[in-house]
């Protein structure tokens, strides 16, 4: 069936970070018969792609990203019951959080929204997450990827502690570690024993997809 719904306005509201308007438009789209998957793909993700692109070009800044991610996150919550009935394939299961001793969640929220929009089942376990909490949640939900946000230099050590705990708990070969945040760089991956690094939300989705391919090999 060809969709008749016009997503232009929803895309623009995501770009503008207008959460309430996005929610209204999501409801409208659902009422008009659009599937949750279509709304995410054609509306929310398209909007976030524009935001991400503008951020890369330095036309947008962190507050623009955060407002758009916030709008998208609310919309995804609204769509959750519909997604549970969806037949679309989930691309992978991710546990995401900000490492222990840190409460700066802005980047993590953006990445979390982007990964959800990118087709992953995301379990966001918040801030100040201990290595044990990451691993326990990963075991509980059978996560494919643990994504650790690490915005502050003094907390980088918790990446390795979490990886080491995965080894101790015998799940290291079942789970990949994706890292990001202001205190990390590509070199941190090797230093801390992780598997991939994402500069931003958009790159995190690409890296997560690659990590899923590696897991399947």
């Amino acid at each position: 069936m060809v969709s008749g719904y016009d997503y232009t306005q929803m895309i623009q509201m995501v770009v503008d970070g207008e959460g309430d308007d996005v929610l209204d438009l999501v409801d409208e789209a659902l009422e008009s018969g659009e599937s949750a998957d279509a709304i995410i793909e054609k509306g929310l993700v398209e909007g976030m792609k524009i935001v991400s692109d503008k951020y890369d070009k330095k036309e947008f800044f962190v507050p623009d990203l955060a407002a758009a991610a916030d709008a998208m996150s609310d919309a995804l919550d609204e769509l959750k019951p519909h997604l549970e009935q969806s037949t679309e394939e989930v691309k992978g299961t991710i546990v995401i959080g900000v490492v222990q001793e840190c409460s700066q969640e802005i980047g993590k929220n953006i990445v979390s929204a982007m990964l959800s929009g990118g087709g992953f089942r995301v379990h966001d376990i918040g801030i100040n997450v201990t290595p044990k909490e990451f691993i326990d949640k990963a075991k509980e939900v059978h996560a494919d990827i643990i994504a650790l946000g690490c915005p502050m230099l003094q907390t980088v050590k918790y990446i390795k502690e979490t990886v080491d705990l995965a080894v101790e708990e015998n799940i290291r070969d079942q789970v990949k570690f994706l890292i990001g945040g202001a205190s990390t760089n590509p070199g941190t991956v090797a230093d801390q024993g992780a598997d991939g690094w994402g500069k931003d939300g958009s790159e995190a989705v690409d890296v997560a997809l690659k990590l899923m391919e590696e897991l399947r090999k």
Binding site: A66, A67, I106
Partner: peptide, 16 residues
């Protein structure tokens, strides 16, 4: 300010 408001709300406030 970020701690008092909550980090996400704080950053969104910069724009909104």
């Amino acid at each position: 300010a970020s701690s008092l408001r909550g980090a996400s709300k704080f950053v969104a406030d910069i724009k909104r």
